[in-house]
Every structure is written in C-alpha cells, then in structure tokens.
Design a protein around this nucleic acid. Structure first.
Lengths: 132, 132
DNA sequence: TAGTAGTTTATAATGATTCTAAATAAGTGT
DNA sequence: ACACTTATTTAGAATCATTATAAACTACTA
C-alpha cells in the first residue's frame, strides 16, 4: 500500500482505519472540501465499512497536524477541511453554502504591509463571499 | 437615546434590551471583536443587568442581518463578531487565539480575476495566521 | 385603551465535537 | 513466535455553543 510509508514517516501507525481514510481522501486526482460527516458517509458508502466517528475525528486531526489536510476558515455549523494543502483561496457561495477553490494565480500577489512584533506569517487566506 | 432612531429605521423595535446592547457595542470610539459569551459578560458587568442569553443571540443576529455587525470567518469554537463593518481584514494569532484588525490599506488591492457565473462578489476577506 | 404583532425569557432540544476508559492492534526485543 | 509496551480504536457519555419552544410581556397603532 502506498500510504504505509507516508504514515510511518509521520510517526503514525498505519492502521487499517487510517489506510482506508487515506484511500478516500488522497486516492484521487482532484482535491476536495469535506466535513467530518461527509467523510464518514463517503467511507461507509465506499467500503460498506464502518469506522467509528471518534476515529474519523482523531485521524482527520492527526492528518491536519501533520499537514496533510487544512482547515478552511469559514463560519459554518460544521468544520470544513481541504485536501488541497497548497496555498490557495476560496469562494463561498452563500446561497448554496458551497465552497469553490480559487487558485493563487486567480488572486494575484497579496502584500501584507503591516508587521506584528515577534510573529511570523504562517498563511494568508482569502475568502470571497458570493451572492446572487 | 441616540440608538432609538437607528433601530426604528431598521424595523427593529427599540426595546430596553436592544438599547443596552447598542450601548455596549457601539458607544465607543474603538471597534472590537467579540464572542456571544464575552458580550454577555460585558453586559452583566456594565449594568449589573442580566439580559437573557437567547435575547443576546437574537439581537446579535438581528444586528448582523441589518449590517451593524459582521461575522469574522475563522474556525474557532465560538463565533466571532466584529463591530467594524468597513471592509477590512484580520490577523489571527494562533498561539494567543487573538484577532487583530488589519486595515484595507495595509493589504493593498486584491484583484479577484476569476468570475463565477451568475454570482456577485459580496465581500473579500483576508485572514493572516500568525505564529511565533 | 384595546388589539396585534414583535420581543423577551427560561428552559429544553439539537448537534458537532471531545472525552473516557476498556478492548484491540501494532511495534520491539528476545 | 512470544511477551511486553505503547498507540489506536471504539461505543457511549459528556460538553458546549447555538437554536427552538412557547408562554409572558411590551411596543406600537387605531
């Protein structure tokens, strides 16, 4: 399995559950946005295989900590994650409540002129809200 | 009272509770960020006067709908609101879990080159995450 | 002043997320 | 393969922000 090394290299034991979650999350050309509930459903559908919700939470947070997933900063009932970990941005369609990727090249350089003492910039994320 | 007209003009009855909340939120030169819980505390401290939590939620949402408050898009346990309703952005200090205003002029123009069919841009918000 | 429509309130309900502690599985050394 | 330690999974309980409910109350209008 191609994810065993990835996990081991991160200090995560390659368990059956984690490998399955990897398949669902990373075994696709397209990146995508998801909530924990959507992910749980996807796993159930895919393999007719149930992974405990607690494990899904644990794993998603572990993957986020290792940098394999990003949280998308948006105010929503549920937390959204992104399998696209490159620097990029998002449209948020307020009516449909849907996220759409917005590539860095579609936004152009963002120049943060102000500095905060003793702090480094970790990320710069743009959220563009859309209405009809 | 200076807020009576403001409320009436928005179709909101100027109740005792709403006027008090206006005092706390808008009767200051500085704009600020807050959560519902912080606001509740502020109200309690200020007037030794308790407004039901449900009313605070209702009022904050009513004010948001009328455009007197903005939600700040950030993933946090609690929802953050901003009394600064001008176009502007935020730093988020990951360690301190604190928001800092970032004026539009400190970011420079943001050019969203991509268009989504049938949708208009309502807002463009930048979140700059800070680490040590 | 009466009528109505909007508000407030305490409390219950909801729902996402986290915690707990017991069972299980993976890694390591022998 | 075996014993041992440590990480992981799990069901279910707990937590906590937020929303819903429905009864009491208040502001507006005629």
């Amino acid at each position: 399995m191609k994810y065993i090394e990835k996990l081991r290299n991160s200090g995560l034991r390659p368990t059956k559950q984690r490998l399955q979650i990897c398949e669902v999350l990373f075994n696709t050309e397209k990146t995508f946005h998801f909530t924990i509930n959507e992910l749980e459903k996807k796993i159930k559908d895919r393999a007719n295989n149930k992974i405990s919700l607690a494990t899904i939470y644990n794993t998603v947070h572990a993957f986020e900590k290792k940098g394999y997933l990003k949280q998308i900063p948006i105010n929503s009932n549920q937390t959204y994650f992104d399998t696209n970990i490159t620097d990029h941005h998002h449209f948020y369609d307020l009516k449909e409540e849907k996220l759409i990727d917005l590539e860095n090249s579609d936004v152009g350089p963002i120049n943060i002129k102000r500095k905060i003492n003793g702090k480094k910039i970790k990320s710069v994320e743009v959220l563009v809200k859309l209405e009809d």
